[in-house]
Nucleic acid binder design. Structure first.
Lengths: 158, 158
DNA sequence: TTAATATAGTTAGCATGCTAAGTAAATATT
DNA sequence: AATATTTACTTAGCATGCTAACTATATTAA
């Protein structure tokens, strides 16, 4: 005899739509804050992930970290290279792969970027408890797994 | 002296990136399952929201429900109209607005769509408790508000 | 060793979100 | 009543994700 339905059900299948919206808004917030640096969302995101991976990783590794496909990254990398924020160097051992490094000015920009992002992050996570954030993070990971399995199921099943 | 940091911190600012990824994957899962119906993500999403809003709403109302801007919707509506799934009828009182209705075959398609989506949804939410889903839904809403405020702050402040 | 397969990266082009700017109708101001 | 503003929608064009198909190199199998 539940009088009120679970809150998430009022969102119905739009929980998924909600994630897309929040994702876009968070990105917009950071991108706005970061605008003076001349960076778009895909570029600052790539920079942050490259920082966490340490320099010298391959494009494939960065794409994995970002959770995007290679062609999506290729475009971004090209832009960051043109802005002389990162540089690509061919791997000596495996001539197919290219390793990514920040340039001097890229590193400087990164510093500023991190300060700004830390600030925005604080705003975005305001009024959310650590427990809440943890639950969300775990839930997202579970849903990601579910979705991947679901996709396998509906495509080839294999 | 906390030995392990909160789980979400291991994701750092990528909690936001996670949402984007999960969102894309969930959509892909549904879109795959729904493929035989000839519907893309934006189209089936619009259909579901139109259903929940009841027919006869304006494009603006549907855009609000979807959480997207009008021009994004215009394109989708046009496609749904060409597929003869929905029909637009000019409002008699306000000649600017157009009201949206399902066609006969649109309604039939909607039935099938709903069955499939209910099935996929079950997979996507598998192993997540009601409490977890509720926490996530609330967290998303809070973050959405934070992000909007943040955006106001960084743009005009006003 | 040669042929088959797999992997890193690119290019081309689609889907879906957006903003900016335009049209036409409704509403508010004077 | 005439003008100015707002609102609903469209069009044009950008940003970022994707898949498919290509090149070049590396690895595996015959």
């Amino acid at each position: 005899m539940s009088s009120t339905p679970p809150f998430h059900e009022t969102l119905d299948l739009t929980l998924c739509g909600s994630m897309g919206r929040v994702h876009r808004l968070c990105r917009d917030a950071v991108t706005l804050a970061v605008e003076p640096l001349g960076l778009t969302q895909s570029r600052w995101t790539a920079m942050m992930h490259l920082f966490h991976l340490n320099q010298g990783c391959t494009q494939q590794e960065l794409a994995n970290s970002l959770g995007i496909e290679m062609p999506s990254l290729t475009r971004t990398i090209k832009q960051l290279e043109q802005q002389e924020i990162i540089a690509r160097k061919a791997d000596a051992e495996d001539k197919r792969s290219k390793r990514l490094y920040f340039t001097e000015q890229g590193l400087q920009l990164l510093d500023t970027l991190q300060v700004i992002i830390a600030d925005v992050k604080e705003h975005l996570y305001a009024d959310l408890t650590t427990e809440q954030l943890d639950t969300m993070a775990h839930g997202l990971i579970q849903m990601e797994q579910n979705a991947r399995q679901c996709i396998r199921h509906y495509s080839g099943d294999k």
